[in-house]
Amino acid sequence: MNNPDFWAMGGYAFYVWTSYGITFAVLLWNLISPVLQRKNLLRRLTVKQKRETS
């Protein structure tokens, strides 16, 4: 992978690496976003429950 030819992709570096970058950015976002939203919701529900029981 230290080979510069690998990163050059035969002159198509821009097209190839942009494709892979966008792909993994979208996939990661679709995975992390629901997890963060759930954590947030759980936190709010916990606060609400504590307020109701006390």
């Binding site: 992709m9 035969g10 002159g11 198509y12 190839v16 494709s19 792909t23």
Partner: peptide, 15 residues
């Protein structure tokens, strides 16, 4: 690399 498309065809693996 592909004999016609060179390394550009590697986009196939995500596309």
């Amino acid at each position: 690399p592909d004999y016609q498309q060179g390394d550009s065809y590697r986009i196939i693996y995500v596309h």
